[in-house]
């Protein structure tokens, strides 16, 4: 039993080590980074490093861009998925229903790399290059979200909607008053997954933004690595730490809902 506990502790340490290491390097002075053997204790230069990294690539602006885009896309995807799933689940069959449902699912088979050049040309035609619309709107469709909510709505007893109808509540009232409060876990879980997905997006911001103030944080950090002949790893790691914090906070806040929505999914 003890052996297994030690193994668990060791595995956890291995998993969190790269993060701790990034934090540690971010606290060192420039010369301390190149000491041999590598130092494993924290130094005192974190705020200094962060400040310099911050100024060098306008980290504040980049973090705000990343956060704004990720929140907008996560909200957009969640809203559109809920609306579509609601239409597919709670209305009398309408002509074209299956076709529309399948069309939404097919987007799952069209990740960005399979339509990258034409999507960029489209942005060009719309005059959207280097804009926030370009960074958000093309991502608003979500096969995953629509499927998730449809599956979830199907587990909700039909008696609920029947009762709502008998009471004379309209569909939108039913959605807002009854369905959404029941869906909080799934809403939070989808928001988390889509937030992280968009926060991690790199290819699209790289090609569709052209000015420094429209960049996202991942690309800013990459620029921090690339700018120097003698890379200042203490600055880079301070930037890395700044880029890790926002998604980790969102993960910590919504982790419980995420885990619960997985276990609910498995009971079905």
């Amino acid at each position: 039993m003890l052996a297994a506990h030690v193994l668990l502790a060791a595995a956890t340490l291995v998993i969190v080590f790269p993060m701790l290491y990034a934090v540690q390097v971010s606290t060192l002075e420039f010369q301390e980074v190149f000491v041999f053997p590598p130092k494993l204790l924290p130094g005192a230069a974190f705020t200094d490093n962060l400040q310099r990294a911050w100024e060098k690539v306008h980290l504040g602006r980049l973090l705000a861009n990343s956060a704004g885009i990720a929140v907008a896309v996560a909200l957009g995807k969640t809203c559109l998925s809920v609306l579509a799933a609601f239409a597919f689940t709670y209305f009398r069959d309408f002509p074209g229903k299956t076709l529309l449902f399948v069309a939404i699912l097919v987007t799952h088979m069209l990740p960005l790399p399979v339509r990258i050049v034409p999507t960029f040309q489209l942005m060009h035609d719309f005059g959207w290059v280097n804009s926030y619309q370009a960074l958000t709107v093309p991502f608003f469709a979500s096969a995953t979200g629509t499927l998730l909510f449809r599956q979830f709505f199907l587990t909700i007893p039909p008696a609920l909607s029947e009762a709502a109808r008998v009471d004379g509540a309209g569909p939108l009232r039913f959605l807002v008053r009854i369905l959404l409060p029941l869906s909080l876990n799934n809403l939070a879980a989808l928001f988390l997954v889509e937030f992280l997905y968009m926060w991690n997006e790199y290819l699209w911001p790289l090609i569709v933004t052209t000015s420094d103030e429209m960049r996202v944080v991942q690309i800013g950090i990459k620029m921090l690595v690339a700018t120097d002949a003698q890379a200042e790893w203490n600055l880079i790691m301070a930037g890395v730490v700044a880029a890790m914090v926002p998604p980790l906070l969102v993960l910590l806040a919504l982790q419980r809902s995420f885990v619960r929505s997985i276990s609910l999914g498995q009971e079905k």
């Binding site: 595995a11 956890t12 998993i15 969190v16 790269p18 993060m19 290491y21 990034a22 390097v25 992280l196 926060w199 991690n200 790199y202 991942q218 950090i221 990459k222 690595v225 790893w233 880079i236 790691m237 890395v240 880029a243 890790m244 998604p247 980790l248 969102v250 993960l251 910590l252 982790q255």
Partner: peptide
């Protein structure tokens, strides 16, 4: 909780950490 954390880290950022490691 701790073992879930890396899910919150963007692969390019992870790549840069490992680049240094």
């Amino acid at each position: 909780t701790a073992v879930l954390w890396p899910y919150g880290i963007a692969p390019p950022i992870a790549g840069i950490i490992f680049l240094f490691i």
